[in-house]
Design a protein around this nucleic acid. Structure first.
Lengths: 189, 189
DNA sequence: CGTACATCTTGACAATGACTAGATTGCGCT
DNA sequence: AGCGCAATCTAGTCATTGTCAAGATGTACG
């Protein structure tokens, strides 16, 4: 532990980020209160403002960090399906980051760091999907929709009944199998 | 128009719901303020409370309405792919309902009407997917993830660059084609 | 040692959600 | 027709929050 009472708090920025991630993961970004975070860190109510300017600033910082983490995660993928799996794994491991990243109305829309981080992650996704599809844009949308939909539904507890105790990652793999082999079925109706 | 000054307002409940949908569609559920809605309807700040109890009550009412609309829409689907298309179309046509439906932290979690409406819509989905898959649960998750991911990414403007002016519904159809024919590709890496 | 800077505190203000008590309207019942 | 009652809306209040401005405090660097 880092002395806890260094005055000037040692690293308030990280302390607030950590507390924010806890709150968001538990109750969503809406429940997040700057004053509450300050209380948890044992500082005055206006202290967070110096590090993040305002609420949007804090959430933008979280989104930037999230895009960085996601890019690093996706980089490890060795196949198209693995890419999806890593995406889902990221969402499950970092639910707070994931939620914030996809709530544009909570972020500073033209923050340069945010734009850069988002762009970098998107390129990661594009190059990873490239080669698996004739139309790259459609391919990216297909893979992304699949993984993102599963992740979103998972985090919002909409799959609880369907998973029925099954491991989410395993279910996601079964699910991609299902899709790729269902070409024989008359899926187009 | 309905006289605008009926005192006791004629139908305050619907007026507030309508205004709420506008705000949510434009700026998300977080930006919604009960007092602002009251102002728009020309009533006192506490008037909405009588119809919806509180913020969660209002949002829950919207979610219930949304599940009803979605169920009605899905009922018209004539194939598995059409089901997905209808799902996407619903999200695009009713973005406010759609967003609220999938933010459990904003809703009264055990509201009986909400639980009933949600259950009814899920059954709709289950029976529609049934028969297209060996493992029904996996089939539902696959179809739902696909459609839900596309809809979510679309509404959060994450597909803007990829669509590149293309019609979203058309793109979704191309995307499902892509998935079903990609069985020949070594998608499993 | 002292000056400049980052960090944090204190105080204030407007806005909001929620609650209570009270006013007004309209409907059913006799 | 008239009375009472419930539904609907108003007015006032309180705690909480985000944000801003000014000032205090500790730190680093000359």
């Amino acid at each position: 532990m880092t002395t806890e009472r260094a005055y000037h708090h040692g690293d308030l920025r990280r302390a607030i980020l950590a507390a924010a991630l806890d709150v968001i993961a538990a109750e969503g970004p809406t429940a997040l209160s700057l004053r509450d975070l300050a209380r948890r860190a044992g500082v005055s109510h206006a202290a967070p403002a110096h590090h993040f300017k305002d609420r949007a600033g804090l959430l933008t910082a979280i989104a930037v960090e999230g895009y960085g983490l996601l890019a690093a995660t996706l980089q490890k993928a060795e196949s198209l399906r693995d890419l999806g799996l890593q995406y889902v794994r990221f969402a499950a491991a970092h639910p707070a980051h994931f939620q914030v990243m996809f709530r544009p109305e909570l972020l500073r829309p033209d923050d340069p760091e945010l734009l850069a981080a988002r762009e970098r992650t998107r390129n990661q996704l594009h190059t990873a999907v490239e080669g698996y599809s004739d139309d790259p844009a459609i391919g990216v949308m297909a893979a992304w929709s699949m993984a993102h939909g599963f992740a979103t539904l998972l985090l919002s507890h909409n799959l609880d009944g369907l998973l029925d105790g099954r491991d989410p990652e395993e279910a996601f793999l079964s699910l991609t199998n299902e899709m790729f082999q269902s070409a024989k079925n008359p899926a187009t109706g």
